[in-house]
Design a binder for these strands. Structure first.
Lengths: 193, 193
DNA sequence: GTACAACTAGGACTATCGTTCAAATACATG
DNA sequence: CATGTATTTGAACGATAGTCCTAGTTGTAC
């Protein structure tokens, strides 16, 4: 709550490596057992360290969850920014990113969703959880000026991820791209009715 | 797993009232503290009963969570079916339902999302969690034959709920309806590019 | 080397968890 | 009333949780 919370985050150089290890272990746990499985003990065992060492770097479990969610969000932010700044078909890039949730990226996407849901309860997680949506919105903003089209694309992206994760929906890139396109490019005539 | 699991579910008439009370208490807990806050003890205290009575009706915590999620899903199923069978503008009805997530229905929608996310881990919850999407798809099927349009509407509905719950996005009914319309009614020309 | 801060280990304290159990109570049926 | 079943209680067991504490180790600046 107060300024004292930094005295743990800002250790020295060597400690940051440990921090990263602990965060990775946390994500492995979220991946395998869900956010509910994250405890100082399980994380420590996963990381091959003692329990107290985990509390040394993350005084409370919340600190640890915030750090883990931030790490996942950073990964997605980087990926989307590559798509935005890249030369190719941005919608297709986004579609590929989404479609990954069905394959190798499933566990990571699941972890992200789990932590995002957690964010609805813990204010500290909220701003981090919002980043994914903001990034997609930014990508959409390069394709259209219509704010509703942007909102539609963000909603479609999120809904498609859910469909893939929860519903095991088909995750063909072209298919995903067509649905994304549908959201962002709608004729005015069609919208009226 | 075996047939023995029914010997608790199918008590007598009086017991079903208790069951309903316990489920309501569970939803109240999920609403207030999230799914992680659901324990036999917290539920029992919320319901004003003893802990062992909660285990009497729901032998395991999973049983209780399944029952709670089923209860929420039933509510939504009923609402959507009213919209489908009703006379009015179905898309508007859906938009109203979604927009409710910002107001009085927020807690309930949050509970549903929380339990749905849980479903990704617990197979017992998965079929129940799928119902909401199937219902929306059924509604969409009354408006179009295009399977991609149906998928797009389901994705948009889900994404809009998320936006409202996590992002505190605007929840104006007309606004929501316009975005839904955009998903289901897209011109072929627009889709191409 | 000495001193000081960063880091690590191991254990302990208290709390709460899921679940079980034997005993009590309520209720219906005879 | 008697009897059996459904319901309810209160307590308990073993397991695990978050967090804290003390002592030991490592690394670095002087």
């Amino acid at each position: 709550m107060d300024g004292e919370s930094e005295h743990i985050d800002g250790r020295k150089a060597r400690g940051n490596k440990r921090r990263a290890e602990i965060i990775d272990a946390t994500l492995a746990i979220v991946t395998r057992d869900g956010a509910a499985g994250v405890t100082h003990r399980t994380v420590a065992k996963q990381a091959g360290i003692t329990t107290s060492l985990s509390t040394y770097y993350f005084a409370t479990l919340d600190d640890l969850l915030v750090a883990a969610l931030s790490s996942v969000a950073d990964t997605y932010t980087t990926r989307i920014r590559q798509i935005i700044d890249g030369p190719g078909d941005k919608l297709r890039g986004l579609a590929e990113l989404i479609a990954e949730s069905a394959g190798p990226g499933r566990e990571r996407a699941l972890a992200e969703r789990e932590l995002s849901t957690l964010a609805a309860r813990r204010p500290a997680l909220a701003p981090v959880a919002r980043r994914w949506r903001e990034n997609v919105a930014e990508l959409a903003a390069t394709l259209t000026d219509d704010p509703e089209a942007i909102a539609a694309l963000v909603a479609a992206s999120d809904g498609l991820c859910t469909a893939i994760l929860i519903d095991n929906a088909p995750a063909d890139t072209d298919y995903v791209r067509r649905i994304l396109t549908r959201a962002i490019h709608a004729h005015r005539d069609a919208v009226v009715s």
